[in-house]
Design a protein around this nucleic acid. Structure first.
Lengths: 348, 348
DNA sequence: GCGTTTTGGTAAAGCGCTTTCCTGAAGCGC
DNA sequence: GCGCTTCAGGAAAGCGCTTTACCAAAACGC
């Protein structure tokens, strides 16, 4: 670890700040000269009970003076439920599109008074991960694609989760599902390339195993679109680095492809550069199309054709979660995100 | 929200799966015919107490049959502390470099048996955010740059956090700090451009307020590097979209700059494209340098010069956290990440 | 046979909080 | 002055778990 360590001398920072223990509501009650019940009423301003103004003030002052902070675990233990929405964090960075979606969602959920917590359980398999999440007794769990199966959903439900929502390509038994049509992305790309007269079509598939949940359905979509036509599909595994791209570009003549769908715009950029460096002209020799409609696609020359994906608005998903939490008895909902739209620019 | 809703008929999925309540350790005890204490001993395999093999088996079987999942809140309430490390999630996506760092760190911490939780408290100011975090009673809090001040640290400590670690540009009183030398990034860039004979130097500063914590010190670093020389520094605010970049490029002649440091590689790419489209040649008319050393910089033509930043290894930081949690009385440590290194390519 | 250890458990307290049920005092109509 | 209601707040239970303190039976030394 390339850092310089600086140990602050103990004289500067007292090594043991007076180890007074964490103040509890009982401490606040004592200082304010009231009961713990009153403290709870005041700090939560419970409407069912009336507390006089002077008492309220005394409680607030005492709480501030002690620096009182309620204990979330104790509270939700007592309450029997939490307002926590758990989001298993994806182990692979999925890109700006997804990050922004997550952010918007978090905002919307916090408006509805939920606490959104991201919790990665790296390396746990199947319902082991679900069990780990269940220990936190979340009100709802929002699982990105591929993170859970029907048994996992059952584990969560049994441990009190009022809603499990999956974002992915397939419906999971027992969970609300938001179906993102990744196959549609591939279909749009495949159909477009075919319509442009291309017949020998390559599909770049990232080596990154964490991305397979996206790349597989996108590839399948291309196959679907070209099924029954005279076009061929060639799978092209690719790591996200220059060497790998250069290697692929070197093999290009023997592959004999006239078009390629590159999984997303970043891989498209990587491949396009390698092809251009190898003397392949885009789009004349080979057409290229990406996906996700990132800013960088418009910065390339030729401008990159891409498939634009409309993710659901965070607010709508937040409302779905809220609805499901309020009424867990109702049937499971399943929503299809509308199909991808093609953005034709200059690379295809 | 552009989706098609599909309500699964209630006959397919039973609307109310037998609303048996969440099984507790008491249920497991009852089924196994032992006491709750024994259940706890067995499931935690406490070494201090010996339980016979047949009893162990009965407990495990009962737990499995009931689908028992322990209740983390109850556990940590009783224990008086948690193994939770809280990481306030940045509200702005910070890019692949940082994501990867986070991931590595999470992995390393989970190896040490900590539960890493990311918790965004959007829109809370100053120690309000710290108070919200404190409610979760984490063992440690890992705050990215700018997210906390000394009062916030005090709140967390008072509520039982055994360690607060900040990742940022400045030391925060009472917290362990990992000092990332963003000013050094600016210094490296500024010094490089100066050494290349450039004198009228622009610095792109993202409009995004969430990025200010990075952009400000990087800008200051450039100023430092050029202080006392005959070079000038011009601040160039820029939003991350094409129009904004085109607008800036249009004003280029009147700005009269011969070099620009573009905050990071993505902004550099955006600006370089706009300049080239406006007829400015790189690096002859204007040199460009980015930062973060992303893959895309090598894909541009000319290849993008950049500043490479070595983030600390997740494992080392995890060990720092662990050390701090084990021994909270010890003095506060402060580490400097080694200075940034310049990667000279073709754009400068 | 008697005292002592060891083995394999159990009973119960208590972590910090909310909420249900009470109660004492004051106010009110007559 | 008497019964009633309202007001302001208290006592205590209990959420699910771990751990301390304790205990009965078996094994053992002599």
């Amino acid at each position: 670890m390339p850092y310089v360590m600086v140990q602050i001398p103990n004289s500067a920072v007292p090594p043991t700040p007076p180890p007074r223990s964490v103040p509890t509501s009982a401490d606040v009650a004592r200082l304010a000269g009231v009961s713990r019940a009153t403290v709870s009423y005041v700090l939560n301003n419970t409407s069912a009970v009336r507390i006089s103004e002077p008492t309220r003030r005394r409680v607030h002052e005492a709480a501030k003076e002690l620096g009182y902070v309620p204990h979330a675990a104790a509270r939700s233990l007592r309450a029997g439920h939490s307002r926590m929405v758990l989001m298993p964090a994806p182990s692979v960075p999925i890109g700006p599109l997804y990050s922004q979606f997550i952010n918007e969602l978090q905002w919307a959920l916090s408006r509805l008074d939920y606490t959104v917590v991201q919790y990665a359980s790296l390396g746990l398999r199947g319902d082991e991960a679900a069990r780990a999440w269940a220990e936190l007794r979340p009100a709802a769990v929002l699982v990105p694609v591929g993170g859970i199966g029907p048994e996992g959903v059952a584990v969560l439900k049994r441990s009190g989760a009022r809603a499990v929502v999956t974002l992915g390509t397939e419906r999971i038994e027992g969970a609300h599902s938001l179906l993102i049509d990744h196959a549609g992305v591939g279909r749009a790309a495949g159909a477009h390339l075919y319509a442009r007269g291309r017949r020998r079509i390559g599909v770049v598939v990232p080596d990154e195993p964490g991305l397979r949940v996206f790349s597989k359905p996108r590839l399948d979509g291309v196959r679907e679109a070209l099924d029954g036509t005279d076009a061929s599909v060639t799978v092209l595994p690719l790591a996200y680095d220059e060497e790998s791209a250069a290697g692929l570009a070197a093999r290009w003549p023997e592959l004999g492809l006239d078009a390629v769908f590159a999984f997303n715009d970043e891989y498209a950029m990587l491949l396009m550069r390698a092809l251009q460096d190898a003397g392949v002209t885009v789009p004349d020799d080979t057409a290229i199309i990406g996906a996700d409609d990132l800013v960088l696609g418009r910065l390339l020359r030729p401008r990159l054709s891409t498939v634009h994906i409309e993710l659901p608005a965070g607010r709508d998903l937040a409302e779905l979660v809220d609805r499901a939490v309020r009424n867990p008895g109702a049937g499971v909902e399943s929503h299809h995100v509308h199909e991808a739209t093609l953005v034709h620019r200059d690379s295809s």
